[in-house]
């Protein structure tokens, strides 16, 4: 594991001074805002919320109290924007857990049920998909020859095989290194996450990712209000702002509570194996120990925690 950096609430003095400074600044502006325009709508949210948004700290720098305020504000904004009551949590990583994924290529039939379950579960803009299933000739492993836009109503096609791809949650993630503001990092359970409220939208991480796993909100996410998943996580499926990067987060809102990721749950052919790499009795450990597994672009040294294998 590269970085098991814990969320240290009491960091160095510099951090404290910075928070203090911003708090004062935010306090002054918020106070003047409430005095004059308590009910004013400013871009769909109150002026004090807008200021609080602007001065919001990096997720890992916030105190417990600041995080609570932030989560409440996120819920408030979702209600304003979509008229939906969401619950936004920030469940921390469990001890002794390191998530990994494996795909049984022999079983995948290319139905894309995982893709659609992911879109729904993760409140994705309807023009964005975290999972991409590639269709390739059976004797071909070269991704550059894959069909990304095959028709999933007529699968499986004889002589083809299917490769689902999503964020590989690399143990040595080039995207994390690239980010100029540390808006993306590896959590202690191995999930590479994005703080959507800290990302400046430079998209350098997208240039750095060798798996095309990162997606940008070019416009406002197209999210139908009546299809919103209301159980959300700060680092996961909460409604996203415009102009920031997002990606697969192994359904952090589910998996940190012991549930399956939506893609695995949706897969009709049992091709998906997800679990704790540190648990010797887990299915993923069985696969890694007993199957001939491989990873994509291993030569790049990114160390994906995402494997592929075949039955035969």
């Amino acid at each position: 594991m590269s970085s098991g950096r814990s969320r240290d609430k009491k960091s160095e003095n510099a951090d404290f001074a910075r928070r203090h400074f911003l708090k004062q600044l935010g306090g002054v502006t918020a106070a003047s805002a409430t005095a004059t325009t308590a009910h004013a709508a400013w871009g769909g949210s109150s002026l004090s919320d807008t200021f609080a948004d602007f001065f919001q700290q990096h997720y890992r720098e916030m105190s417990a109290e600041e995080i609570k305020d932030t989560l409440e504000r996120i819920e408030r904004k979702a209600r304003k924007r979509y008229g939906v009551d969401i619950h936004c949590k920030d469940t921390a990583a469990m001890d002794g857990v390191l998530f990994g994924y494996a795909i049984n290529v022999s079983k995948c039939r290319g139905y894309r049920d995982c893709v659609h379950a992911c879109v729904k579960e993760n409140n994705l803009s309807r023009d964005t998909q975290y999972i991409r299933v590639l269709e390739l000739d059976r004797d071909n492993m070269n991704l550059h020859d894959a069909d990304h836009y095959y028709n999933s109503d007529t699968v499986p096609v004889a002589g083809k095989h299917y490769f689902p791809m999503q964020c590989m949650h690399c143990d040595n993630p080039p995207c994390v290194k690239a980010c100029p503001v540390e808006a993306t990092w590896t959590e202690p359970d191995g999930i590479v996450v994005v703080d959507y409220d800290w990302c400046i939208g430079c998209r350098y991480c997208m240039a750095a990712c060798p798996y095309q796993a990162r997606h940008f909100n070019w416009g406002y996410p197209k999210l139908p209000a009546d299809e919103i998943t209301t159980d959300t996580h700060y680092l996961g499926n909460r409604p996203r702002p415009r102009g920031v990067v997002e990606k697969c987060h192994f359904c952090v809102q589910r998996t940190r509570e012991g549930r399956q990721p939506a893609c695995q749950e949706a897969c009709p052919s049992g091709a998906r194996v997800f679990g704790n790499l540190l648990d010797p009795k887990s299915e993923i450990r069985y696969v890694l120990e007993n199957k001939a597994v491989f990873r994509l672009k291993e030569d790049l040294g990114t160390e994906p925690k995402f494997w592929y294998f075949r039955d035969k």
Binding site: F54, V181, W198, G201, C202, R242, G243
Partner: peptide, 9 residues
């Protein structure tokens, strides 16, 4: 930049 308002980050 997607979020020039956050350039102070």
């Amino acid at each position: 930049l997607g979020r020039p308002d956050r350039i102070w980050h």
